[in-house]
Amino acid sequence: MSLTITETINWLKDVRKEGANKVFTMYLNTDRSDPNQQGGEWKIHLKNGMRNFETYLQQDDNTEELNNFKKVKKKAMDFIKENEQQFQRGVIIYATADDDVWFAKCVQMRLEDEFYWQETPEINQLIELSEKYPKLGIVLVQQNQVKVIDSESNRIKETTYFELDVDTEDWKIKQGPRRPSTAGAGGPHVQKDSFESRFAANQHRWYKKIAPKLDKIAKDNQWEQLYMVGEGDSAKELEKLMHRPIDAVLQKNMLDHEETKVLEEVLA
């Protein structure tokens, strides 16, 4: 399992190098919506940032440290080249020549351009981002449908859909959201009324079956915050049945909304 941002921060806090084996830190703004980035200015900032260190080390006549920096530079530039087409709003890199430190991530957050070559990694921006955009989960509930969003650093990592099979009374993972089942005889209105009545009578028992699944997902994903989104009694009932505390409940029906829009609403 990859480290969370909080775990990464704690790891980096203990990193300290000596002599010629410094730590490289880079925060690069690649946000295309930034008015200052319309012409791909990030490429110029990246080139200048790298060149400044190289020029300084050449003038200082420190061959070993210069060679270490060139190794780190190559690794960083290779990452940039491989991921350029998937750039979001920023890139963060921490690296050492001996591979003891390597962290490279494209993030959905605007960064301030910063470059460091020193004994310790510079983690102030990472700390700010972790506080503003924690690792969080969002549970959206609408009667017999539940959608779970796993998010970190303002980015959707994974989405899981559950739907209750009202015949077997089992919650099953689905590939996409569906409308509530309306099993029963008769026309559409009779079916809907029958389902609504059955759901009202069994809501507590049905939600009690999925609550442990959601608790396990929250634990496995190490969520720092958890939000519940749903209208009426559904969200409140499911909240009561989960052991994991809920940080906030939004009384809105957003099950069919785009995940990024849900995340924006939660973090607003």
Rank of each mutant, 00 (worst) to 15 (best):
L3A: 12
T6W: 07
E7D: 06
E7N: 13
I9D: 01
D14K: 15
R16Y: 09
R16P: 02
A20C: 06
V23L: 10
Y27F: 07
Y27C: 01
L28I: 02
N29I: 00
N29Y: 01
T30H: 01
R32K: 14
S33D: 15
D34M: 07
G39K: 15
W42P: 00
K47D: 12
K47W: 12
R51M: 13
N52V: 13
F53I: 11
T55P: 04
T55R: 13
L57P: 00
Q58R: 13
N62R: 13
E64A: 09
N68W: 01
K70M: 11
K70R: 10
K71C: 02
K71A: 00
K71I: 03
K75V: 12
K75M: 14
F79V: 01
F79Y: 12
I80F: 12
E84R: 12
E84H: 08
Q86V: 08
G90L: 06
V91W: 00
A95L: 02
D100M: 10
W102Q: 10
W102N: 11
K105F: 12
C106G: 03
Q108S: 14
D113K: 06
T120E: 12
P121G: 12
E122R: 13
I127H: 00
L129Q: 09
S130K: 07
S130E: 14
K132G: 13
L136A: 04
G137I: 11
V139Y: 04
V139M: 03
Q143D: 09
N144G: 12
V146E: 00
V148I: 09
S153G: 05
L164Y: 11
L164V: 13
Q175G: 15
R178L: 15
S181I: 06
A183P: 03
G186C: 03
G187K: 10
P188S: 05
H189C: 05
V190K: 15
D193S: 14
F195N: 09
R198A: 10
A201I: 07
N202E: 15
H204N: 05
R205T: 14
I210F: 03
A211R: 14
I217Y: 11
I217W: 06
I217T: 11
A218T: 11
K219T: 13
K219W: 02
N221M: 04
W223V: 04
Q225I: 04
L226D: 00
Y227S: 07
G230L: 07
G232N: 11
K236D: 03
E239C: 14
L241K: 03
L255D: 04
L255F: 05
D256S: 08
